[in-house]
Computed example of a mutant assay.
Amino acid sequence: MPELPEVETTRRGIAPHLLGATIAALEIRQPRLRWPVPTQLPETLPGQVIRAVRRRGKYLLLGTDAGTLILHLGMSGSLRLTPPDSPWRKHDHFALRLTTGLGLRYHDPRRFGCLLWTETAPEQHPLLAALGPEPLEPAFTGGYLHAHARGRRMAVKSFLMDSRIVVGIGNIYANEALFRAGIAPNRPAGRISLRRYEHLAQAVRTVLAASINQGGTTLRDFVDAAGNPGYFRQTLQVYGRAGEPCPVCGTGIRVQRLGQRATYWCPQCQR
């Protein structure tokens, strides 16, 4: 599933081509995504200039004078830039065409993504209003995590993946950050010291930044706007490595289901 680094990689890939461009048309092949594509969009968007290409958590926000498009890649979605008359592929569901002839096409075999529209501030939209801080911005600190974890019995991995606490940290990066911080994923969130949360916040920032620099992680479906896979998979230290030796101590990496997600950790290095 595309997580923050994959969405940020997509944003960086499309922004230079979209900023300041005028929308010529929105062509919809499949309106039934996670939520139905608003029926008025093909009439609303033509002639609008794209003023901003932003990311909030795992959502992409394309701002115009009339409103903002809210896009989510779902579990298997990707956006790619296409030349004029590029053939449609199976599972291509909509295309935003620019007056330059370039297209932005959404591909999603599982159809769990979305294309929505808001005429108010996107931060007030129900999908975004309750989101926590961005993990790469100053508000995300060890002190912030420690304060919000106080009294919580839930596993720290589930706590870290709660978008109301902090946005964008999906399963892959929660596993990797907890390993780097030396924290067992099943440890109760409220029983972790401030010092250890400071290490965890830094580990989250390090892992996310490294993945962005390598174009994200491709396990199955993800490609960037140019059709390239992400290469962070080659540097994963625990995720997907059950039974392999820990890169630090050599102990076999363990895996279990935690919060219905595969959880990988080293029983020697993580306490």
Rank of each mutant, 00 (worst) to 15 (best):
residue 2 P to M: 01
residue 9 T to I: 04
residue 10 T to G: 05
residue 16 P to E: 12
residue 17 H to Y: 08
residue 17 H to A: 14
residue 17 H to I: 00
residue 20 G to W: 08
residue 27 E to F: 00
residue 29 R to S: 08
residue 31 P to W: 03
residue 31 P to Q: 05
residue 34 R to V: 05
residue 37 V to I: 15
residue 51 R to V: 01
residue 56 R to T: 07
residue 57 G to I: 07
residue 57 G to R: 02
residue 64 T to V: 11
residue 64 T to E: 11
residue 66 A to F: 03
residue 83 P to L: 07
residue 84 P to I: 08
residue 87 P to F: 12
residue 89 R to Q: 15
residue 90 K to W: 13
residue 95 A to V: 10
residue 96 L to H: 11
residue 97 R to N: 14
residue 97 R to V: 01
residue 101 G to P: 10
residue 104 L to A: 05
residue 104 L to N: 09
residue 104 L to F: 07
residue 107 H to V: 00
residue 110 R to F: 10
residue 112 F to H: 09
residue 116 L to M: 15
residue 141 T to M: 09
residue 145 L to E: 01
residue 147 A to I: 03
residue 147 A to Y: 03
residue 148 H to P: 00
residue 152 R to Q: 15
residue 159 F to G: 08
residue 160 L to D: 00
residue 163 S to N: 14
residue 172 I to E: 00
residue 178 L to G: 14
residue 184 A to P: 06
residue 192 I to P: 04
residue 193 S to F: 06
residue 199 H to D: 14
residue 201 A to T: 13
residue 201 A to G: 13
residue 206 T to G: 04
residue 207 V to W: 01
residue 209 A to T: 15
residue 222 F to S: 04
residue 233 R to N: 02
residue 237 Q to H: 03
residue 240 G to K: 11
residue 242 A to R: 15
residue 242 A to Y: 01
residue 244 E to K: 15
residue 246 C to G: 10
residue 257 R to P: 01
residue 258 L to P: 08
residue 260 Q to G: 02
residue 262 A to I: 00
residue 264 Y to D: 03
